[in-house]
Design a protein around this nucleic acid. Structure first.
Length: 420
RNA sequence: GUGGGUGUGGCGAAGCGGUUAACGCACCGGAUUGUGGCUCCGGCACCCGAGGGUUCAAGUCCCUUCACCCACCCCA
């Protein structure tokens, strides 16, 4: 159908776009204060970037990417997330030569071929930050603090920071072995999905919703049980910095991130308002990512948040972030001559930064007044033939209905005086 | 990809086999000739997501399809 948008995409209409602008401004402001600078990365990349960066076995790469061949037979993919591109750009532009850490943020559309539902779309928008070049736990905490500051300024309540550490590759290997050892005893009693997960991703068994599986996995070794001394120390320090920043968190040893690049710190910010899609923000440390893309070993930590998921949350919490402003002036005219003069005045008002409007449908004066009222105009300028012949116009204050005559030459000046 | 629910004008919502498809909001116009927010009057669905079928007759039954919602999965 020609008049139907592709599944999972959205048109954002006036009324909504103002809210997006408000959010975008807020994100940029907070980032500026935290020392994160904007990077704009391509909407599409070489497919290999995501295969390597995100991981071949992840759902995102294995079944959710929009991949196609361009006219030169290159495999191209619409970006499903922003971290891989940002890391690529960091290496490509040798940002490691800059004072470290390099702190970046991005926002924009991402694409994943998934079944749409509330809070989940095929084209959706992420805002994300990445800090490259420091393995200090304080950066992990800063990044979490940045996310929380955004939500704080939006006025959101009831957010929970879920925190875990998945350790380094060594810890992960050790944990996987211990976990499988634990699970194999009762493997046949787990649900079919979990039996599948046993080989592919045993960690996932821990957050299966099936009550039976929950029960069976009680007491299973957690990633935290298997942290090496270095990773353990890192995790403790992250918690320490979060305490210093007075950021509350809950340890969630079942929290696992789905992308291959995560190491050590993993976190999610959870909110209850959007049904099944409760993760409003997710991130962590990815010390192996840059190396896997062919760069020098470089630590990194960051997060991404789903912008679409913020709006329903705001709404159910009764928070309005609209930045729509009422109209300053409506210019109503009567007759052809007056209409021309009205148009001139309108354009002059706008040169002076006055938000102003006129009728463009040849409506009756009555209808124009009605229109002005609907726009919530503060002032209406009324121009008729009789006023025109005397070189004046009528200025009406819409709240009090007071009207005065103003000389044609002074309209703009007088209007401005009455507005400010 | 799997399971469940829904689909009537711009929005909300009746109708559940039978003449011109209620109603509310919104929108447009009018109520003596040049003035808003209240009130009153009028207008606004060759058609009930799309396609096909059953029937003398379908928005109302059946099939297919599409979209949306919820859950699984996964994630932001």
């Amino acid at each position: 159908m020609l008049t139907t948008r592709p599944r999972g995409t959205n048109d954002f209409l006036p009324g909504e776009t103002e809210k997006w602008q408000y959010l975008e401004d807020l994100l940029r402001t907070v980032c500026r204060e935290f020392g994160y600078r904007e990077i704009r990365i391509p909407i599409f990349e070489h497919t290999e970037l995501f295969q390597r960066g995100v991981g071949e076995t992840t759902d995102i790469v294995s079944k959710e990417m929009y991949t196609f061949f361009d006219r030169s037979e290159r495999s191209i993919t619409l970006r499903p997330e922003g971290t891989a591109s940002t890391a690529r750009a960091y290496l490509e532009h040798k940002m490691y030569a800059l004072p470290q850490p390099t702190k970046l943020f991005y926002m924009g559309p991402m694409f994943r071929y998934e079944r749409p539902q509330a809070g989940r779309y095929r084209q959706f928008h992420q805002f994300g930050v990445e800090a490259f070049g420091s393995s200090e736990p304080a950066v992990d905490a800063e990044v979490i603090g940045l996310a929380m500051e955004i939500y704080r300024r939006l006025g959101l309540n009831g957010l929970e920071v879920h925190l875990n550490s998945v350790g380094c590759p060594n810890c992960r290997k050790k944990h996987r072995e211990k976990l499988q050892e634990f699970l194999i005893k009762n493997l046949n009693e787990f649900c079919p999905d979990c039996r599948e997960r046993f080989e592919k991703n045993p960690l996932r068994i821990l957050d299966c919703k099936n009550a039976k599986c929950q029960e069976l996995s009680q007491g299973a070794p957690t990633t935290l049980d298997c942290l090496c001394p270095e990773c353990g120390e890192h995790f403790d320090k992250v918690k320490g910095y979060l305490d210093l920043a007075e950021i509350k968190y809950v340890i969630d040893e079942r929290l696992v991130r789905g992308l291959d690049y995560y190491t050590k710190t993993a976190f999610e910010i959870i909110v209850k308002e959007i049904g099944a899609q409760s993760a409003i923000c997710g991130g962590g440390r990815y010390d192996g990512l840059l190396e896997s893309l062919g760069g020098e070993p470089t630590p990194g930590v960051g997060f991404a948040l789903g912008m679409e998921r913020i709006f329903p949350t705001l709404e159910t919490q009764g928070i309005n972030i609209s930045i729509e402003k009422p109209l300053d002036v409506f210019v109503a005219t009567l007759g052809d001559e007056a209409d021309k003069v009205g148009f001139q005045i309108l354009m002059k008002l706008r040169q002076e930064g006055v938000k102003s409007e006129k009728d463009f449908l040849g409506r009756s004066l009555k209808a124009q007044m009605k229109h002005a009222g609907r726009f919530n105009a503060r002032i209406t300028i009324i121009i008729g033939e009789t006023e025109l012949s005397r070189g004046v116009v009528v200025m009406r204050r819409m709240d009090t209905s007071e009207q005065i005559e103003v000389s044609l030459n002074d309209v703009v000046k007088v209007v401005k005086e009455n507005l400010f």
